[in-house]
Design a protein around this nucleic acid. Structure first.
Length: 281
DNA sequence: CACTCTACCTGTGCGC
DNA sequence: TGCGCACAGGTAGAGT
């Protein structure tokens, strides 16, 4: 379940590890499953990318943004392959002889004897061909790693919404999924059903700091390690998927509830709903 | 505006 | 062993 830290790891891997995607020439595009390609991007066809060369690898929220330039590029125009892995997508470079697998949806044959493979058993992941990146991401909130405290606080106060669905809302903040929403709220000692505009300044600060530290640690660990279910990197979760186990802070059993149709894990002792302040004190 | 429901998918793991 | 089924969840879009 790639969220911001896992996607960041993939981006760094494609950019900084060997072999790197940077500089590679697209020699042939093999669209194995048509559904992976989202029309509605301002483009004609993925198949016309032959001859393009990869020039940049970036991430915005959970989206990977691969920059490319066409052959004989006199106008110095960069176009972008935007990829969302959703639940089960994987994106990685392989030797040419490993260009396909059972769940491969798209393969780009490159020079230097490598191929870029997009695998996705569940077929949720999507690829767009985009010219105007800023326009494409116009509806997306600020990246969760990039946002500063002042902007976070003012955006949070602008909504009267439950914290959990708000954190998952990519137009509010881009990059947080179900795992890191639960982990951030646990670290901030805030209940998933607490209302955003009701938080005290101290609680807002605690939520901001918790999101930042959870994501920073997860990025440093190359993603989450969820016992027996999901293994990307080495970040150990505190509550996600740990219902029935003891909270490592207070020993209370972690529970799982549903919030906005989502499995939500919390420690009911550490994360209390604020009491209604109807009377003095 | 805030929330809920449904659709999209298939591998996994449970109960019987 | 094998069958059926609920479940996992990011996002879009429709409905309340």
């Amino acid at each position: 379940m790639p969220e911001l830290p896992e996607v960041e790891y993939i981006a760094r891997n494609l950019r900084d590890s060997l072999p790197s995607l940077l500089g590679r020439l697209i020699q042939k595009v093999h669209l194995v499953w048509n559904g992976v390609y989202s029309t509605g991007s301002d483009s004609d066809s993925l198949l016309k990318l032959e001859g393009y060369r990869f020039t940049s690898v970036n991430r915005h929220g959970k989206y990977l943004v691969l920059g490319m330039k066409p052959p004989n590029d006199q106008a110095n125009v960069e176009r972008f392959l935007v990829i969302h892995l959703r639940m089960t997508g994987r994106l990685f470079l392989v030797p040419l002889d490993q260009a396909f697998d059972l769940h491969t949806r798209l393969t780009l044959f490159l020079d230097n004897n490598v191929a870029l493979r997009f695998d996705d058993p569940r077929k949720f992941g999507r690829v767009w061909l985009v010219d105007d990146v800023a326009g494409f991401f116009a509806g997306l909130g600020p990246d969760a790693l990039a946002i500063g405290f002042e902007e976070f606080a003012s955006r949070l106060a602008a909504f009267r919404r439950q914290l959990k669905p708000l954190l998952l809302d990519q137009s509010f903040l881009a990059g947080i999924g179900n795992i890191y929403a639960d982990e951030s709220l646990f670290r901030a000692r805030l209940h998933p059903l607490a209302i955003s505009s009701d938080l005290t300044p101290i609680e807002v600060r605690r939520l901001f700091d918790s999101i930042k530290s959870v994501l920073d640690e997860a990025v440093a660990a190359n993603g989450a390690n969820i016992d027996g279910v999901f293994k990307a990197g080495d970040f150990i979760v505190s509550v996600y998927g740990r219902n029935g186990h003891q909270c490592h802070v207070c020993g209370t059993r972690i529970i799982k509830i549903r919030v906005g149709q989502r499995g939500t894990h919390l420690c009911s002792h550490c994360q209390k709903l604020p009491e209604k302040r109807t009377d003095a004190n």
